[in-house]
Write a protein that binds this DNA or RNA. Structure first.
Lengths: 119, 119
DNA sequence: AGCTTGTATCGATGTTTGTGGATACAACCT
DNA sequence: AGGTTGTATCCACAAACATCGATACAAGCT
């Protein structure tokens, strides 16, 4: 259950896609995160969790929001977690998930055009 | 060869993943673009093109940069194009590709936490 | 201890996806 | 017209993926 920290390289990745050609290793790590976002169900799950008032959401609320079997939702949550986009904790009977905005911000930075470097 | 304009909805999508739960249709469109980014080869292709000095890159330069057959590169470029991340034009014998930063910026905006809405 | 409910893992299955060989198309050059 | 080179499409195949039923695990309740 590697919780891959993916995006903490000092410069290489955080400089942005458009500032220099991505090395193979960076591309592989980044692709894993983008792949996690490349499914409608996972995007909606992440969005539901991230937009939640208190910042957390119970699986028991997520599952019935979809027309999918419970194991399927569980599987998607696992992928989002492995991508470092969300994390979870069990509290008593229920498991709560929350978003990890730092990962999303890192991705956003990667997609943005180099800002200071031009103009 | 739909060149799906994906990210031009006025508010819904551009408000960001974390501001409100994504509707199913929005999620489907967004997922298609993220899926295009969810492959190391495509990420490197996009990065090579986007970081190119003149803004354009010839396929004849892209293909030999990978250990893959020419049809495979062509296929990946097609997916990036269908996602609205790049576009191309044939000039004489060669085909040139360039990045479409507006799509990347839109994605970045979707990933960013709502900035004005809180604080 | 048993029962019930919430969640994750396992195993199987149908679909999608990445890949490359063969081939077709496009443009140049004799 | 024929030949050569660059690029895209077609077809097939193996690997990856989304899905679900069955089952296992976790925690509360009686």
């Amino acid at each position: 259950m590697q919780q891959l920290p993916v995006l903490d390289q000092p410069d290489a990745c955080c400089a942005g896609l458009a500032s220099a050609p991505l090395a193979e290793a960076e591309a592989t790590e980044l692709a894993r995160v983008f792949k996690a976002l490349g499914d409608p169900v996972r995007l909606r799950l992440l969005s539901m969790i991230a937009s939640r008032e208190g910042g957390e959401m119970c699986v028991c609320e997520l599952t019935p929001a979809f027309d999918l079997a419970q194991p399927t939702i569980s599987h998607h949550l696992k992928l989002l977690r492995q991508a470092g986009l969300i994390d979870c904790e069990r509290r008593g009977t229920w498991v709560y998930y929350w978003a990890l905005p730092s990962t999303m911000d890192s991705l956003a930075a990667v997609l943005r055009a180099p800002q200071a470097a031009q103009a």
